[in-house]
Simulated assay, not measured.
Amino acid sequence: MHPPLDNLSATGPDLSGRLILYVGGRHQHVSHLRRIVEAHNGAFVHHDGGVEQSLSKLSAQLERADAVLFPVGCVSHAAQDRVKSLCRRLDKPFRPLRSTGIAAIIAALDSVTARTASVI
């Protein structure tokens, strides 16, 4: 059971229906991340970074996404490289995350709404 997210939606950014692609991370966190994005008026899709899903599927998901987030410690270098190169080519904001905590996710979503996501 997850804690209520009512206070998060009041304090965080309005994603205005943006589709957020989250690449990698831990499978058990995906439903919680989905709830956070949806609490901020966004849509959420997850790709495991090539563990069970193919990296070719990542390309299709990335083309539909408005922004991409990925935790650098929980995704392969191949998936990170694919995300970065595709995002640059398609001019999509992406944000590598040093932490998978709620504060880091909210900050990344905030940067996405400001269109200032990190591009390395």
Rank of each mutant, 00 (worst) to 15 (best):
66 D>W: 04
37 V>P: 00
57 K>H: 05
42 G>A: 14
118 S>I: 10
84 K>C: 10
56 S>I: 05
95 R>Y: 09
1 M>W: 08
35 R>A: 15
67 A>H: 06
14 D>N: 15
58 L>T: 00
70 F>E: 06
115 R>S: 13
69 L>C: 03
79 A>W: 08
51 V>R: 14
96 P>S: 15
6 D>L: 15
105 I>Y: 01
81 D>S: 11
85 S>Y: 11
93 P>I: 11
74 C>H: 06
27 H>G: 08
9 S>A: 13
68 V>Q: 09
84 K>R: 10
56 S>E: 11
115 R>T: 12
65 A>R: 01
99 S>E: 04
114 A>P: 10
67 A>E: 05
17 G>K: 04
66 D>P: 08
42 G>S: 04
107 A>M: 01
40 H>W: 02
93 P>K: 06
111 S>N: 10
72 V>H: 03
91 D>A: 09
120 I>W: 03
88 R>N: 15
102 I>L: 11
63 E>R: 10
28 Q>M: 07
106 I>A: 08
53 Q>L: 10
2 H>G: 04
48 D>S: 01
23 V>Y: 01
71 P>D: 02
12 G>K: 06
9 S>H: 06
5 L>S: 08
51 V>P: 01
59 S>V: 01
25 G>P: 06
35 R>N: 15
47 H>K: 02
59 S>K: 05
50 G>K: 03
20 I>R: 05
97 L>C: 00
96 P>L: 14
12 G>V: 13
26 R>Q: 03
48 D>Q: 02
60 A>E: 10
35 R>W: 02
24 G>Q: 03
21 L>S: 07
94 F>K: 14
79 A>G: 02
79 A>T: 00
63 E>M: 04
43 A>I: 00
3 P>T: 11
39 A>Y: 08
3 P>L: 08
120 I>S: 11
25 G>E: 07
50 G>M: 03
18 R>H: 12
100 T>E: 06
62 L>R: 02
5 L>T: 05
19 L>S: 12
98 R>N: 14
117 A>I: 07
64 R>A: 14
95 R>C: 12
57 K>C: 04
53 Q>F: 07
10 A>Q: 10
105 I>P: 01
4 P>F: 11
106 I>C: 12
69 L>E: 06
67 A>L: 01
46 H>K: 00
104 A>E: 12
82 R>M: 09
117 A>Y: 02
12 G>F: 08
72 V>W: 01
12 G>C: 14
110 D>H: 05
104 A>H: 03
103 A>E: 14
33 L>N: 13
69 L>V: 01
80 Q>N: 05
105 I>D: 00
120 I>M: 04
27 H>E: 14
71 P>E: 02
118 S>N: 13
91 D>I: 13
104 A>Y: 00
112 V>P: 09
36 I>M: 10
14 D>F: 07
3 P>I: 10
22 Y>P: 00
88 R>C: 08
37 V>L: 04
81 D>Y: 09
120 I>G: 12
67 A>C: 07
65 A>P: 09
34 R>Q: 11
45 V>R: 09
